[in-house]
Every structure is written in structure tokens, then in C-alpha cells.
Design a protein around this nucleic acid. Structure first.
Lengths: 191, 191
DNA sequence: ACCTGAACACCGTTCAAGT
DNA sequence: ACCTGAACACCGTTCAAGT
């Protein structure tokens, strides 16, 4: 458990406001212009100096992680919800893939997450791992019912699905094409 | 048929030499530092002014396409060779995926090709289409023997396999992980 | 016809000076 | 403690001047 006594001193009010404004602008900028967009622009739009952006987020990845935290929460919660609702575990897997695609197509940044999956030093690693765990839960439920192929490891599947979502988001692929790819993966892992 | 009379006038000798030197340097640079590496560096290493690079290759994609032409030739020829050698069409599909991975892991640039697949105006579109055709040939041979799942379209498969290769190349993924993903796709399209 | 290299605009990053 | 904005290095791109 954390508390104020652990050294998590509250930020000065203006710093907190700046931080929030940067995040708000960054989320919109990443979604509209992609995760490679100019950080200077973000700082300008948030009406702070470039140094202020760097003080709060020392790297593009750090900013990316903070900006994505919200939808990563949502998508992980979706995983649990899908399992609870669906009666067919195979359909649950399909819905899980599709939900992941939904989020990535809007918010982008999945390519950075895939890159971070193998790199514990990345600021995105924690978010990455949360998605990986959600994926593991959905898949293992299907596995327990015997509907998964033998020898299917959840992590390559997570990488693959995230990778497809990343590709679709970065390239601006029509949704249907991305779905077709996910369907191939679905057939490849289930029986 | 093309001939000198069609307006394909020969280049001046120094221009031809410069062009070749730029391509030689570019191939090494893309392979070592990735397809996003500095074009200024390439010009410097090839000992030409930046303007000369732009005269020969008006965009990064144009340079990329010229630099990749060689291995695209090779990989397409591989497709035919694999079909001729292999007795099992399923094994041929597997080998085809694997061969594509080999080339991309060395030369990079597959992400740009995936992006170009849906964009006929891209300088990479022609190379892209050649790979797509090779893929179509290998897959349809397997399809003729009834070893392909019903409703499998070759193009989404091409995009998917190229996409995985691109991901593996860009992220520096261990070969085994990429193979694991390709195996899932293989199971997804065959029976 | 082709090459050169200076020039420009833009971007990420740092840091001394301020409050 | 935090912010500002000037400064620096780097890169893509253009173009006037040369041969």
C-alpha cells in the first residue's frame, strides 16, 4: 500500500494543471496525427514551454505510456467482462481480439507497445504486461474447455494480435481487412 | 518491349556511378540502421551532395524501392523454386513464409511495403504486387490440392505474413518468436 | 546534364535565468 | 519547485551557382 508518507509528495497546483493539459493534448494528437507527431506541437498546444513537457515526461515513450493508461485500463476490463458475458469461450476469444482492435484503431500507439513487449526497461513495459495478462486469462479459459489447439502459447498470440492491430492503426487499414487477419489468427489458435 | 528509341536515354557516366554508389551505401545503411536512417548520412557516405541523392531518388520510398529491388527479385524466384522442389504443398507454404522472413530480417523495409500494399501511388507498390503475386501462386497451388481452408483469400495472408516479418525486423524480435507467429498463421490457413 | 553546398524550416533536447 | 524560452545539433528539402 502507498501513502503520502512514502515520498509521493503532491505536485504543485500549476504543475499538476500543466501535466493534465499536456496529457489531454497528447491523447488527441496521438489519435489524430499518430504517435510520431511533433512533441513541440503538443507543448505549444498545451501552452507550455518544451522544457516543461520534458520535465513531466522525459521521453516520448513516457508520455505515450501516460497518455495510453486510460484505454489500457478499459481494454483489460473488457477482457474480464467478455469472459463473464460470453457462454462460448471461442466466441470470447474472437470478441477479445476485436475489442483490442477497436481501442488501437482509435488511440494508436500499439506498435510502440509491441516493441516494448520484449524490453523490460521500456516505460511501456508495465502497460504491455497488463494487456498480456488479460490476453492470457481469456486464452487460458478457452484452453481449459479444450477448445484451444495443443501447444498454443498465449504470449506469441498476444504479440501477433497486438502487431496486427498496430499495423492496421499505423497504415490506416480498413477495418474489414484487419478483421480478416484476426480471423486467420483465431482459426490458427482454436479448434 | 522497350528500346533506346523510347526515350530511355543512357545516363551520363558520372551520374550512373553516383547512382550506383548511393544504392550500395543505402542498402547497407537500411540493413544496419533501419529504413528510417538519415538520408544525409547516406549521401555523405556515398560522397555526393544531398541534392544529388534527391535528383536520383526524389523520396525515401523511391530510394527504398530501388535498394530493395534485388531481394524482391530473389524472394519471388524463391517462391517458384519452393513450389518446384517441395512435394507437400503445405510444407511449401511453410517454407515460403520462412523464406520471406529470412529476407526481411536482413534487409528490413517490409513495414514500408505493407503500407504500400493499399496505396497504388506509392513507389513501392510495384514491388509489393510482385510479392503478392508470388504469394498467390504458392497459396493457390496448396488450394488446388484441397489443403487450404475454405474462404482463405491470398491477399490478407500476404499482408499478414509481410506484417509479421516487418514487425520482427523493426522490433529486432528473436527469430524463434517470429517463427511461432508464422506457424499460427500457417495453421490458420491450412487444414 | 549533372553536381555542389549553402540555405531554410523543422524538430528533439538541454539548460541558464527567472518566479 | 517549477516554468520559460533561447540555444544547439540534426535532419529533410530546395535551389542558385557552377562544370
Amino acid at each position: 500500500m502507498m501513502s503520502a508518507a512514502d515520498g509521493v509528495r503532491p505536485m504543485r497546483a500549476d504543475a499538476r494543471r500543466n501535466r493534465e493539459r499536456i496529457l489531454l493534448v497528447a491523447r488527441a494528437a496521438f489519435a489524430e496525427r499518430g504517435v510520431g507527431c511533433s512533441l513541440d506541437d503538443i507543448a505549444r498546444q498545451a501552452r507550455v514551454g518544451p522544457g516543461t513537457l520534458y520535465r513531466h515526461f522525459p521521453s516520448r515513450e513516457a508520455l505515450l505510456d501516460a497518455a495510453m493508461a486510460g484505454w489500457v485500463d478499459d481494454v483489460c476490463a473488457s477482457g474480464a467482462a467478455i469472459l463473464a458475458e460470453a457462454d462460448d469461450p471461442l466466441e470470447a476469444v474472437r470478441r477479445w481480439f476485436s475489442r483490442l482492435l477497436d481501442h488501437v484503431l482509435v488511440h494508436k500507439g500499439a506498435s510502440a507497445m509491441v516493441a516494448a513487449m520484449g524490453d523490460p526497461s521500456s516505460p511501456l513495459y508495465a502497460s504491455c504486461s497488463r494487456i498480456r495478462e488479460a490476453n492470457e486469462t481469456v486464452l487460458s479459459t478457452a484452453g481449459d474447455t479444450g477448445r484451444l489447439r495443443a501447444g498454443v502459447e498465449p504470449d506469441p498470440v498476444a504479440r501477433l494480435v497486438l502487431g496486427i492491430c498496430a499495423l492496421a492503426g499505423d497504415v490506416g487499414m480498413p477495418r474489414g481487412e484487419a478483421e480478416a487477419m484476426l480471423e486467420i489468427v483465431h482459426r490458427g489458435v482454436t479448434r
